[in-house]
């Protein structure tokens, strides 16, 4: 009983403003709108700058009257995000959720969390401790993780497109699909096969 009509409208609305916000939301596959992938650019002036972060979204049956479940699938070093599982500690994804919020506004809040960590309410105790006790090391670790896990060089994308073309998909379609899932080969392949 997810309100799919609303989800559809949300996706359209979000798609109109990708240039402005950099926030993308796309279905994981064409089979259902209940599993989606969100993409947020790392905020400028933070150790996440230049990275593109993917977030797995699962809509509960009661959506939008219950909050969407969101979890980073890109590894990220942040006090309020588990470095192991990607679980996010954010009030609007819990008791402060309101049905008037959307996937896009929720992702914007996640992006804001990247800019403004709250180490006093940690999801990842190790990261939070480092943030409070050794801020410089925290910054360089977070930057290193961004470089390692959240950046796909343009050359990397070309290689992936090439690989998909070799598998028999049209180049343009391979490219747009890859872009829509933030450069994740496996997701792109899944999407192309189900589509």
């Amino acid at each position: 009983m997810i309100d799919f009509a609303r989800v559809q409208k949300e996706l359209q609305e979000c798609g109109k403003d990708v240039e402005g916000s950099g926030i993308r939301v796309a279905p994981k596959s064409d089979a259902t709108l209940a599993r989606l992938v969100g993409t947020i650019p790392g905020p400028i002036g933070t150790p996440y700058e230049g990275g593109v972060f993917q977030i797995d979204i699962t809509l509960p049956d009661g959506y939008p009257f219950e909050p969407p479940k969101m979890q980073f699938s890109t590894k990220v070093w942040h006090p309020n995000i588990s470095s192991q599982s990607g679980a996010i500690c954010l009030d609007i994804l819990k008791d402060q959720w309101s049905p008037a919020l959307t996937l896009k506004t929720a992702l914007l809040s996640v992006q804001a969390l990247l800019s403004a960590p709250e180490p006093d309410d940690p999801q990842d105790a190790v990261v939070a401790k480092q943030y409070l006790k050794d801020y410089q090391t925290f910054i360089s670790t977070a930057r290193y993780w961004t470089e390692t896990f959240a950046k796909t060089s343009s050359r990397g994308i070309e290689e992936k497109v090439q690989k998909l073309v070799e598998m028999g998909f049209p180049e343009a379609q391979a490219r747009t699909t890859l872009e829509s899932v933030g450069g994740d080969e496996n997701l792109a392949l899944e999407k192309l096969c189900s589509g």
């Binding site: 679980a87 500690c89 009030d91 008791d95 402060q96 309410d121 940690p122 999801q123």
Partner: peptide, 16 residues
């Protein structure tokens, strides 16, 4: 719930 310390009670109170 989970690793995070923010919990909320059915009485409406959220606390750490």
């Amino acid at each position: 719930n989970g690793g995070c310390n923010l919990v909320s009670c059915i009485c409406g109170q959220a606390f750490w």
